[in-house]
Design a protein around this nucleic acid. Structure first.
Lengths: 362, 362
DNA sequence: TTGAAAGCGCTAACAT
DNA sequence: ATGTTAGCGCTTTCAA
């Protein structure tokens, strides 16, 4: 336990390290950055000195001298209707991924608006920015361009310009759900979606799911409907009632609304509709939610971790000069669990009503 | 719209501003920091120049010259059993509050461990740290002291030392719930708590709620039990079954587990126990959760926003030299809604079964 | 009330 | 393969 070293780490400069190792400051700098070949022995002495002294380069000095802050700003608007745990998982995944590249994450809220972007860019606080929860026409995007700040969006804006984006391919996800239900022989299917506000405000992913679902359903000859839902119990009840009233034969339901999943399953039970005997349910939601019900839900998981890592990978690519513009769409996976089954057979397609080790990605 | 100005903000230095305003660099610096008296007219010319040129001080340079980064590091471990939306709300509240003091938030994950604290402190990346979700014996705390970094914890460690902490007074919260049920005439009460792991691992707030509840119940002459719960439907069912088996006369339930709230309410309905006719339910949870059920829940809200603001206030106090050590315990509020009522009367105490505008804090 | 100038700790030419 | 040194943009003495 190098207690002496770490106790004084605060005031240790590169000059101290250089003296301790018997080399020049630049040698230390280069040994640490790897931007110049350093001989084995020298390199080792430097590293020893660094460890001995508990040296950590001063972030401000480094940023000043190199015009690189090694910080990535992440702006999180946290709009209503978003499922917070997913946002958080993406955020934490980005933070972890950033560290593997020696970067740190600076957190910005949505209410700083475009000024936040401007401030962080102009002050050199961050080298790049990640925008979460982007709207189709996001006012922060032109500012990013104006400040010529490398940026990545989580979610797809309408005019990507030269920036990079990442998202689950929700259009394909909608299609996959429709396909699964069609394959199981269901003719009347319904999509219970997000709150109406989400569609109006930012449309992006929510609308893409709907179009993917409806288009594929049409191609497969299914009758399909879409109903927004607020995520409250009452709202879920309203949506389900409407669906069963208008199309009593509905035997397949896709739900893209984490808050509505629990209420929906309980309502189906109350209505005497067995899952999957009478109604098959497919969710587009994080696994955590899909595994919480009984039976467990056949679902297209939200790859939050992958989205976070991907966002940072894109940001790093921009910082290293490689372009990599355009949208990275993560292909949806369908995980079949106990909530979906063939029409009329009364049994789940795969995996048994309790889910379990036989869950299988398709 | 000062388009020329902002377009070039990236390269604008204090020297540019000084030249533009016809003053010296130091005058600009002092006009901006307010650390020296500047005459009205001079001050105005400086501000004009700043606005004209879209000047933003370079964060790194400032940090180097002043040994102040104006950044607060926040470490979020995100342990299992924690309710993520509350963590997120606290985090965003801190970020917003920090900006009002000119500070930014640097996000650290738990998996960087104590090294993260050391690195951030030694590199001057942050001036202060906030630790969320602290354990009773948290290994990061000695490191903070060793690095002599001003720090605040959200949650209470067992050995506070000289650091400041903030949390809801969960002990009092448990007591308030017991009192409420006692006031309504309930004799047999139960607490459905968090997962067993939470009690074993970090104990802190979860255990304090239990002791506050049990002690007050004893004082009021109630029979009380405590049952941990994982938050899954099955786990909630298990807990409720056990409670009703062991003490069929139980007519008051306190629940401190956001995930279990929905399942619990449905289970009570399935068991034919009307809320609040047969069983009164009181929750310790964010309002968002308490308002999602039907009837709405009488609850002690988690003051996430207040905790976030408070944490930053404490951090700022440490940075300005004022000590303010010790724990800041936020007193619990009880909000009576439709889920609790007098025993045997069959009606809610206040507010009606639908909750509504008559909700009233006590 | 204002200016001039010496660093803060590091990087990256420019040397050798 | 390594050393020397001139800044990076700002704050803050020290002078006036």
């Amino acid at each position: 336990m190098p207690s002496r070293a770490e106790g004084r780490a605060a005031g240790v400069t590169i000059a101290d390290v250089a003296a301790h190792a018997g080399v020049s400051m630049s040698t230390v700098s280069y040994a640490l950055s790897g931007k110049r070949r350093i001989s084995g022995p020298t390199r080792e002495r430097v590293m020893r000195a660094v460890a001995d002294l508990g040296y950590h380069p001063h972030a401000g000095a480094r940023s000043l001298a190199s015009s690189q802050s090694n910080v990535i700003a992440v702006m999180v608007p946290l709009r209503t209707g978003m499922y917070v745990p997913v946002i958080m998982e993406i955020l934490m995944a980005m933070t972890t991924a950033a560290r593997t590249h020696g970067k740190d994450i600076l957190l910005l809220t949505g209410d700083e608006g475009t000024d936040g972007v401007r401030r962080v860019a102009a002050s050199g606080l961050a080298d790049a920015a990640v925008l979460m929860d982007v709207e189709l026409h996001d006012e922060r995007i032109p500012v990013l361009r104006e400040m010529s700040m490398p940026a990545v969006t989580v979610g797809l804006p309408s005019e990507p310009g030269d920036l990079a984006s990442i998202d689950l391919d929700f259009e394909a996800a909608g299609g996959v759900c429709a396909d699964h239900l069609a394959d199981l022989g269901h003719d009347d299917v319904a999509l219970i979606g997000l709150s109406a506000g989400v569609y109006h405000r930012r449309t992006g992913f929510a609308a893409r799911t709907v179009s993917g679902f409806m288009n594929r359903a049409r191609e497969r000859g299914l009758r399909a409907t879409h109903t927004p839902c607020d995520g409250t119990f009452d709202s879920a009840a309203h949506a389900l009632t409407r669906i069963l009233d208008e199309r009593p034969a509905t035997s397949g339901i896709v739900v893209q609304n984490e808050e509505a999943v629990g209420p929906l399953m309980n309502l189906l039970r109350q209505f005497g509709r067995g899952v999957p005997q009478d109604v098959s349910v497919v969710a587009i939601c994080p696994d955590q939610v899909a595994l919480q019900t009984s039976p467990r839900l056949t679902s297209v998981p939200i790859p939050a971790e992958e989205m976070g890592r991907g966002a940072i990978r894109l940001a790093m690519a921009r910082l290293s000069g490689r372009p990599m513009a355009g949208a990275t769409l993560i292909p949806p996976r369908l995980v079949v669990r106990g909530s979906s089954g063939a029409r009329f057979t009364g049994g789940p397609a795969v995996g048994g009503a309790l889910g379990g080790p036989s869950d299988l990605p398709v």
